[in-house]
Design a protein around this nucleic acid. Structure first.
Lengths: 329, 329
DNA sequence: CTGTTAGCGCCTTCAA
DNA sequence: TTGAAGGCGCTAACAG
């Protein structure tokens, strides 16, 4: 590979001159620039990004760290992040945190291989994030709050969403309402559950602990939880699944048992994933403003990079989406 | 930020010793390693990845370049790539090629910021790929063939898939069959169309050019193409959509006009995206071995990195998936 | 087993 | 406007 030295030699100038010419610095004559560019072309010169980064200590790229890049769930979020990043002439790379603290993602964080990061990955430890975030390395965390002035928290108002879902069920006349939960240590799940309880309380609907079923945010988990509910004989009027994937698993379980949704039981999900619209019946759910969350996150990174003081917490509103999986009782 | 020099000083050893200790080199005593590690911990030392990469001229990471990271389409592919990469202790980053030759992706290619790349991004020019691939920078291209011994081509047998889809339609008694195409410059689309024509020919079914409708692989394009077909009054027996997204758009158009699928018209798609199973009716389609394609691609990269001679072309078989959108005529 | 040291390729200050 | 030179932080000969 040709280096800048080769280019300079071929152009008959000093290395510094070549560097200036290549980077569009003012202090070189047009003629010199031409000479240098020509030499570079002839040698098929490509700058060595690492050397340049090392020198500049700035990469002009930000990282989006996801627990599972292959999840369709992240589409909207990525889009939001991507657009804002590109608009600011920054580069974006996505990396997976599969492997937790031993993952590529962690390496990027610890070694500060990017100028900023957005994290939605429960398998990256809070410790790593706390230790990495600093003035010249701002981080936005989407799924928890981290104790570090340079790690801010952009979150969807899951509690509000949980409330909306539950309130709708109650207003439609349902009284015995089941909650199929996500992993208990998931912040999102906890908040949704709080919203659920808030609504129950506001409307004086008693909470029956037997109706809280453990799930794990997977379709299969929803399927199993629903089977369990069915096996208990005493089916509730309605079920609030902590996410759509589980609701779709539940739909499957009901179908197998010949139980009609929403005729026999009403259900609502959370997330509004693409599939929900195509489920049978189409799923009533809570939409998360994922695009907005992504866009806002990048925005905050740039603000912090610019040295501006910013709020440490942002809360985005959810939206209730009515489709056909809930019936008035 | 503490550097390795600081660590060495604090541990009371030479820089090289610190480096050896930190990198688990054999030739340091356990006691020294302890000392160094302790010093590193105390200083909260983190190696500077760029300096290290610069020195080693090896990054231990490969890049997956996608035209649109937010497409749910890529899930399976990513999974395949991810697993094999991780198994080989390599890091994986994904980058979007939004912006074409001015994108982050192109920068990674040109500046060789990774050890190898897998590309599925029609907006990256063939020229860039040809100029980037070289012995120490192998590239796998998934959507076209590139003239460069270090750029190999892993492809799904789209022609075979097109044949399978068409053959099924013919065997079910359909004779006037429409082809709703993807972008004409898409290699995948061209191959699928060839398969379509092959089948027509083998079964002596005449091709009517009025039945070839231009689409663009989007749901909306499928919708519009279908509307057009309907407007022509003379609906074909069956339609082969060059991908599932378009088929789903078509379903929508038929539904609006009260035309039954598969009662009035049979359709088959291509890709077997997740939605297809949930469409109404569930879509008969051709599955692409995306996971396998991803896994194989990484595999080839590693082979090339190891200096082994490899084939330049791989062709993966498609699979016919029968669901409910085709009826015997 | 440990220490010295020469770069990796680039940028940028300083002097000419 | 140009050139020489000193690092950025790390690795790995090489010498001890």
């Amino acid at each position: 590979m040709a280096t800048i030295k080769d280019v300079a030699k071929r152009a008959g100038v000093a290395v510094s001159t070549a560097s200036y010419a290549l980077n569009g610095n003012e202090k070189v004559s047009a003629a010199t620039i031409d000479k240098v560019l020509k030499a570079a072309r002839e040698l098929n010169y490509q700058k060595n990004g690492f050397a340049s980064d090392l020198k500049r200590t700035k990469t002009n790229t930000i990282a989006l760290i996801l627990s599972d890049m292959s999840g369709p769930y992240f589409s909207e979020l990525i889009k939001g992040v991507q657009e804002v990043t590109a608009n600011n002439q920054y580069d974006l790379i996505a990396c997976s945190s599969v492997g937790g603290d031993r993952s590529t993602a962690t390496k990027f964080l610890r070694e500060k291989r990017v100028d900023g990061a957005i994290i939605l990955a429960n398998n990256i430890s809070t410790k790593v994030i706390e230790e990495s975030a600093r003035e010249d390395f701002p981080i936005v965390v989407l799924d928890r709050d981290v104790e570090n002035p340079y790690a801010i928290h952009v979150e969807v108002n899951n509690r509000q969403g949980g409330y909306q879902a539950t309130e709708h069920l109650i207003q439609m006349g349902h009284r015995s309402i089941s909650y199929v939960s996500g992993p208990i240590d998931s912040h999102d799940n906890q908040e949704r559950f709080k919203g659920f309880m808030d609504a129950l309380k506001d409307y004086n609907v008693p909470f029956q602990s037997r109706l809280k079923i453990g799930g794990d945010f997977t379709r299969d988990g929803g399927y199993r939880a629903t089977k369990m509910l069915i096996a208990q004989q005493n089916l509730p009027d309605a079920i609030f699944y902590a996410n759509d994937e589980m609701a779709i698993g539940g739909l499957q379980a009901f179908k197998e048992k010949g139980i009609g949704v929403p005729e026999d039981v009403s259900i609502v999900g959370f997330d509004d994933i693409q599939l929900s619209e195509y489920a049978n019946p189409p799923l009533t759910t809570i939409r998360q403003p994922k695009y907005e969350a992504g866009a806002l996150s990048v925005h905050m990174i740039f603000q912090m990079l610019a040295g501006e003081k910013v709020e440490r917490n942002y809360n985005l509103s959810t939206e209730f989406i009515e489709r056909s999986s809930v019936k008035e009782k």
